[in-house]
Amino acid sequence: MKIGSLIGDILKSFFKKPATILYPVERIHAPERYRGQLFWEPEKCSGCQLCVKDCPSNAIELIVLDKVNKRFVMRYDKDKCTYCAQCVASCRFACLNMNSDQWELASLRKEPFTVYYGKDEDVSFLLAERAATSHLHSTE
């Protein structure tokens, strides 16, 4: 039995540089495979809805504006997402990817967590439509 067996280690630590990364001061990068925020490219999407079906937490929704002309908008909730990348694995056209650099997602409010992906005119069309209907609801 010994007492103070760690003495060598604590002395070494004392003279060594701390193991600490100075995160908020110096930004660091996550590894390449890290699963951060989800991104969607509308060009390749066929609208099969497999990703939506497989999502364990209803974080994504593919809103079909016009099926024939392939006008889709994807609603994505960063705060619901479990960051499991099953949607990425399910997609046959590789239109989904999780960005390894978008992981600083904290926010003081919940609204910014919902994002809409798609072509600009589709998104603005959808949002205008939604605003109009919500206006209708509020006046009822």
Binding site: P24, D79, Y83, C84, E104, L105, A106, L108, R109
Partner: peptide, 22 residues
């Protein structure tokens, strides 16, 4: 709630980021 930190789970850095937001 004052700050929301999404992630499942968030990395420790992301938690630090959230706290610094607060």
């Amino acid at each position: 709630v004052d700050v929301y930190i999404p992630g499942c789970p968030p990395r420790p850095e992301a938690i630090i980021f959230g706290v610094s937001q607060l």
